[in-house]
């Protein structure tokens, strides 16, 4: 469904020192540098697959999505989405995809959302009966009843996001690019949007690429993860494999029935925290079960749980690990005009 090979997007940006002197200097001699927003990215996505795109701010996630949806022309590389080249923006391609940007809106600000839906119905040439059916479905899942006739500017952020999603999916696209679709929403609304995306994926076998700063979005929806940083892919695979590779340990949470010195706990792994009879030990993943058995046999344990470390921590560690060596070659001073 989606094929990306050696995709690159390099921008030339102007640099200026702050203040009057900086302004004058920049007026005479304008310095530029090349920023490699996306730098040789390759991946493939199968039809119906849901993929999570993770990375810190400025990693290249949104730039990649913008190239996949045809908004940006790549500097080099090959992109094919459903057999189309996105940058050509052919009508069948545009009817095939959607891009939801949590921080950009397509709804007309001063009119009810229903008017924007009518515009989309006409533009995407959606027959009346199909439009009514889709609207009924979306109204039910997203609970749109009562908000469609209110002016968009009078809707709450959550209500507006629901309408944005409905407007973006009205033509039932087969490929969804979702860029931070739950940004700024409360937890309940995040869950509602997640359920809607999952339901849409099931019903229409849609391919979904999702970027989000909320790890819960990704863990709830995506089996496969691509981690991108400084424009390069750092990891591509199952969420569980990511945790295994980035976090070679598991967290053993103990509740002891009698006091035990720290030194005895440290025999089993790294003591992460200690609070009276409660302790957290990070143990090597490969022999977690043997260590747990030994621990139960030798220590006064009242309760024990063994878990993977939180995904946020794993990703955080992954980024701090890759940042340092990547730092040097990411940006290149090139010219002074």
């Amino acid at each position: 469904m989606i094929y990306v090979r050696e995709l690159r997007k390099h921008y030339t940006v102007h640099e200026k020192e702050p203040g009057l002197v900086g302004s004058l200097r920049s007026f005479i001699r304008r310095r530029t540098k090349i920023v490699r927003a996306v730098d040789g990215v390759s991946f493939e996505i199968a039809p119906g697959e849901m993929l999570g795109f993770l990375g810190p701010n400025g990693a290249g996630k949104t730039t990649t999505l913008k190239m996949l949806s045809g908004l940006l022309h790549p500097t080099s590389g090959t992109v094919s989405v459903g057999g189309y080249t996105p940058k050509e923006r052919r009508t069948p391609f545009l009817k095939h995809i959607t891009l939801v940007m949590g921080q950009k809106q397509q709804l007309l600000w001063d009119l009810p959302a229903l008017d924007s839906f009518l515009v989309n119905q006409a533009i995407y040439e959606i027959p009346n009966d199909e439009y009514k059916r889709t609207m009924a479905e979306f109204s039910e899942i997203l609970e749109l009843e009562g908000i469609l006739k209110k002016q968009v500017r009078k809707l709450s952020l959550g209500e507006r996001m629901k309408c944005e999603l409905a407007a973006a999916l009205l033509h039932r696209p087969r490929v969804l690019f979702l860029d931070e679709p739950t940004i700024g929403l409360d937890v309940n609304m995040q869950v509602r949007i997640r359920e809607f995306i999952a339901e849409y994926n099931r019903r229409y076998e849609a391919t979904v690429i999702l970027t989000s700063h909320y790890m819960a979005d990704v863990t709830a929806l995506c089996q496969r993860i691509i981690v991108i940083d400084k424009g390069c892919i750092m990891f591509d695979g199952d969420l569980s494999a990511l945790i295994e590779s980035a976090a070679p340990g598991k967290v053993v949470r103990l509740e002891l029935s009698a006091p035990v010195p720290d030194e005895r706990l440290q025999e089993y792994g790294r003591l992460e925290s200690r609070d009276g009879l409660k302790a957290e030990i990070l143990v090597p993943r490969h022999n977690t079960s043997q260590l747990a058995a030994r621990l139960l046999a030798t220590l006064p344990v009242a309760d024990v749980t063994i878990e993977d470390p939180p995904i946020e921590e794993v990703i955080g560690q992954l980024f701090t690990g890759v940042r340092a060596p990547a730092e040097a070659g990411a940006e290149q001073q090139v010219a002074a005009r």
């Binding site: 908004l71 923006r89 940007m101 533009i123």
Partner: peptide, 8 residues
Amino acid sequence: SPKLLRPL
């Protein structure tokens, strides 16, 4: 961007 995504 939102306008460019539509087939018009």
